[in-house]
Design a protein around this nucleic acid. Structure first.
Lengths: 238, 238
DNA sequence: CTCAAAAACGAACGTTCGTGCTATATTGCG
DNA sequence: CGCAATATAGCACGAACGTTCGTTTTTGAG
């Protein structure tokens, strides 16, 4: 109860000075990579220490428990997700264009293998959905955020008069998310790159059907040539 | 090469007599239950032995290695899947009715919690898609079977003149599967029972759009009353 | 009832897991 | 430069992992 939050205390100390903050970041970078491919439970402290050529105990001291390490890893993965998906997609003006962009960029995020094991959160959700705890709660909250972003974008597209107002935002968000996760699943399990095209076709068909006359031009045409499809997305800064 | 297949030999011996075959079945029943909820790796030999009040070594002797245990567990889960999903759905005559039935029964199979952790294979696929080996291969093959069943049913519905012939069976199978797995994911992670209705609506809308005039009557109407929706599916035999 | 085969057991193996301690390096402020 | 705070290392722990081995119990055919 009155016990001061030790990890917050430590984090504050680290923010003031700059000692282990860099090692901490390096640890988390490796942790995210391992966890995305082998799971958050397969992410073992000994394995992680070996990867970074440091001692188990030295590494361990940064987090205090395995669960804290897992939570920090999830948070680091979320940062990457925001940087690689949310922000690029949000460069499109709100409305149908952004909604499509969210789906498109997400598929690219899996195809580019931003995480070695595909979508970090799809993997983490499947791993932890059966075991209660802080990690599961955090992962569920993050995925709820994502669904909410999709749903809000649907509503905005409706507000802009680009999407049929009779569509239920939560329903459409569910469908779009399912198609994306389906592509992730097919790619991870079967190495099926065609799945990205399938998901894109399905998403586009669904959106085109619901688009208004003003909305339609914001969607790419279905019959685009295979080659120069990958438009440069602005390369981070400028 | 010329080494006789030891496990096959042992299985044959067991078939002749009837000693451990029953215990083996009991073991696999518990194994499937644990694995579906905590993963095939979380399925530990000690844990399993404790569950059944028998010794680790006694249990272990039935399989010879952990991987063999996992493979046997996957096979047992497949049997259950065939019994609980494939067979009931195949009572419908081939065509659009059966295609819908496959989707409907699958969603019920998750909702009824035939496996404690939702779809056994969705979980196993997510767990093993990153680690090569016999288990991964078997799981992938089983999921490919399922996709093929869906695809073939699409083609049959087209053959019966109940579904638009311009639809690509593999594409439609991908979409239906994605929606189903999306419902499984939402239910497992968020306990969201609404997801089943969402998936059903999405699947039905997709199928209705592609159905021919002959096909349409084979699909349930969209606006059914909430209550008496769960028709008894024929209770196995007769 | 006998007795060999089959099945289950108990104890131990070498590892690896997460987690404590205590001591040594490294750091940055005064 | 000196010194306290911070960061890393070393070592050991108990538990659990998959696996092996020799022994004991159970079984069914003769």
């Amino acid at each position: 109860m009155t016990v001061p939050d030790k990890s917050a205390e430590r984090a504050a100390a680290r923010a003031r000075r700059a000692h282990g903050e860099r090692t901490r970041q390096a640890i988390l970078e490796a942790a995210v990579d391992i966890a995305s491919a082998e799971g958050l439970e397969g992410l073992t402290i000994g394995r992680l220490a070996a990867e970074l050529s440091m001692s188990k105990s030295g590494l361990f001291a940064h987090f205090g428990s395995k669960e804290e390490l897992q939570l920090a890893t999830v948070e680091a993965a979320r940062d990457i997700f925001v940087r690689e998906v949310i922000r690029p997609a949000f460069e499109a003006p709100k409305g149908l264009g952004r909604l499509w962009s969210l789906c498109d960029v997400w598929l690219e995020y899996v195809r580019r293998e931003v995480f070695r094991g595909g979508c970090f959160f799809a993997a983490a959700a499947a791993e932890f959905d059966g075991r209660p705890g802080a990690v599961r709660d955090r992962v569920a909250a993050i995925m709820k955020e994502w669904l909410a972003v999709l749903g809000r974008s649907v509503a905005e597209a409706q507000g802009e008069g680009q999407l049929d107002r009779s569509a239920d935002p939560a329903q459409l968000a569910f469908e779009l998310n399912a198609l994306e996760m389906g592509a992730n699943w097919a790619f991870q399990l079967h190495g099926d790159r065609q799945a990205f095209a399938r998901a894109r076709v399905a998403v586009l068909e669904r959106l085109r059907r619901l688009a208004t006359a003003e909305g339609l031009p914001l969607l790419p045409s279905l019959e685009q040539k295979r080659g120069a499809r990958r438009a440069p997305r602005g390369k981070k800064k400028r």
